[in-house]
Amino acid sequence: MQNEKHFFTLLKGVEVFAPDKIGKRDILIAGDKIAALEQEIEVPAGWDCRVIDLESCSAVPGFIDGHVHLIGGGGEGGYATRTPEVQLGDVINAGVTTVVGCLGTDGTTRHMSSLLAKARGLEEEGVTTYIYTGSYEVPTNTITRSVRDDIILIDKVIGCGEIAIADHRSAQPSKEEIANLAAQSRVGGMLSGKAGVLQLHVGDGKKKLADLFAIAAEGEIPITQFLPTHISRNPELLEEGIRFAKLGGKIDITTSSANIPGKRTGITAAKAVRYCLAQGVGTEQITLSSDGNGSMPAFDGDGRLIGLEAARIGSLFETVQELMEEGALTLESAIRLITENPAKNLKLYPKKGCIQVGSDADLVILDEVKNIQYVFAKGNMMVEKKQQCVFGTFEKNGKQ
Rank of each mutant, 00 (worst) to 15 (best):
E4R: 07
G23R: 08
R25W: 00
D32K: 14
K33F: 11
A35W: 12
A45D: 13
R50Y: 07
V51C: 04
A59T: 05
V60K: 02
V60R: 00
V60E: 06
L70K: 06
L70D: 04
L70A: 11
G73N: 05
P84T: 12
V86E: 07
L88N: 07
G89N: 09
D90Q: 10
V91L: 13
G95R: 08
V99K: 02
L103V: 14
T105G: 11
R110W: 10
R110Q: 14
A119C: 03
E125W: 03
T128D: 15
G134L: 11
P139R: 08
I152D: 02
L153A: 15
I158M: 12
G159S: 10
C160H: 04
A164R: 00
D167F: 00
D167G: 01
S170L: 08
S174D: 09
S185T: 12
R186W: 10
V187G: 01
L191Q: 15
L191S: 07
G193L: 06
G205T: 03
I215N: 05
A217V: 00
I223P: 08
Q225A: 14
L227S: 12
T229I: 07
S232E: 14
P235H: 07
L237S: 09
E240M: 03
G241P: 06
F244W: 07
G249Q: 06
D252K: 05
T254V: 05
A258S: 13
I260G: 00
I260Y: 00
K263W: 04
A272Y: 04
A272H: 03
Y275S: 03
L277G: 06
G282W: 03
S295Y: 01
A298G: 05
F299G: 04
R304W: 10
E309T: 01
L316F: 08
Q321T: 14
E325P: 00
T330C: 02
L331S: 10
I335P: 08
T339M: 05
P350T: 09
C354W: 04
Q356A: 14
V364R: 02
V369T: 14
N371R: 13
Y374N: 14
F376K: 05
E384C: 09
E384R: 15
F391Q: 05
F394N: 14
G398L: 03
